[in-house]
Design a protein around this nucleic acid. Sequence first.
RNA 1: CGGGGCGUAGCGCAGUCCGGUUAGCGUACCUGCUUUGGGAGCAGGGGGUCGUGUGUUCGAAUCACACCGCCCCGACCA
Length: 507
Amino acid sequence: MYFSPVRLPSKIGPEQAEMSEVMTKRATDYSQWYNDLVLKADLAEHSEVRGCMVIKPHGYAIWEKMQAALDGMFKATGHVNAYFPLFIPVSYFAKEASHVEGFAKECAVVTHYRLKTDPVKGIVVDPEAKLEEPLIIRPTSETIIWNTYRGWVKSYRDLPLLINQWANVVRWEMRTRLFLRTAEFLWQEGHTAHATKEEAVEETMRMLDVYATFAEEWLAMPVIKGVKTQSERFAGAEDTYCIEALMQDGKALQAGTSHFLGQNFAKAFDVLFTDKENKQSHVWATSWGVSTRLMGALIMTHSDDHGLVLPPKLAPVQVVIVPIAKNGDQLAAIDSYVAPMVSALRAKGITVKYDNDDKKKPGWKFAEYELKGYPVRIAVGPRDMENGTVEVARRDTLEKETLQAVDLADKVEHLLQAIQANLYQKALAMREAGTRAVDSYAEFKEVIEGGGFIYAHWDGTPETEEKVKQETKATIRCIPLNGDRTPGVCMVTGKPSAQRVIFARAY
RNA sequence: CGGGGCGUAGCGCAGUCCGGUUAGCGUACCUGCUUUGGGAGCAGGGGGUCGUGUGUUCGAAUCACACCGCCCCGACCA
């Protein structure tokens, strides 16, 4: 059922050098397939800076589509964008104890502000230019934002404060993978301040819903909403909510988080407001984020051995039209034949590329657009011009069909909707097939080897969670919000359990 | 950070063990002709700090040491 990781010799055999096999197959080595796909589909490449990637135009275009959709949803829920500094003084960072504890191990630190020439080494850090206080490069912005909010919030009239930031952050990870975990990544982080706990909790849940909606309607990726256990909670949060998705190899991926921060940061940064009764209290906070990791989620949810598969709503170009011509005259005839189709498609808001570049052959283009995940490909040749048809191929099923060109724009519009829906349904079916409920720890140990989401009872203690993690490498992904609330007994200790939680091996 | 693998033309590799012509092959690229409904064929051509540095040697892609980078596995994490 799943594409399980298999260890292979690092040398690539001659059969893989063939033109027809530009990528490792999922079933051969899932992890290598992922790496190949990111590179071959031209989404990103490794930079020479350790742990950092270059997001290439095709990959960045997809990220921009995600940004646009999310940004619209943030605005629609009353948020505005702002920008805070990349550098955070260590003293700010130090103010919230559990926050520091969580991030200290992976902080890049700036200690100097100048270089100088050196006769031997060329250029060196100028020891004279040491900063009085080191700056860290933000791994997340709670501290600098709350330090700023102190000046912005005085009265209940200033609340709620609903701000989002699109930014880059740095976490010095030991091991990185393109999109899934890089030392520097792009994300958005929302930071809100509220007068009451209820309002902050409501905001936390609202943004969790925004993420779930985005994942399902745009990424075509079904997710489970849940709350994290104590050990998986964001450093500094009271509660961390998340959306969890299941990838094709049976591993779970956390795709977004929304945190209820309580008054932790307000207390650490003395953010107080005066209410209607002239009483002072600390404000209540939330923060929430999704990152370029969603690119990894997108890839691992839909793509296949032919390359990337993109949901139409996130595809930078939804329809590519490829002419098949024997000569220049024929190409010119196809140009005219296709022009009204292009206009009609664009009039419906469909993004279209007509690729009449005669320096590349049709077959080459077919393979290339397939690899890059264009949802619909239309081929037009002399036969079509005679018959008033076009050949339409859909990327998700790889099916080809010859259609009458009349009302093509309507047909394509429906096809794009059908593809979007089909991708979601396929992903949902995959998740359902990969989801099991188990009651005994012995069965759990067996089932977890095959991957997937496992619903099991847990006694609620970090000790039991840790034991399971040590013995099986599976963690509690979340306590689902909409799951079965039937109580039971912990599969490990036999102690009472309020409801089943989701275990999985995770990215 | 530990274990394993790797670094030679844009990409994929051979050559390294056992030092010795002008460093090869496939593909990509350029030119010409023929082609064009799933990564075209033939002919000719261009392209190399052999990851970086230091050393050994008459001579280093090849040997030694150090460093850098990448991949896979583990620990950590979104």
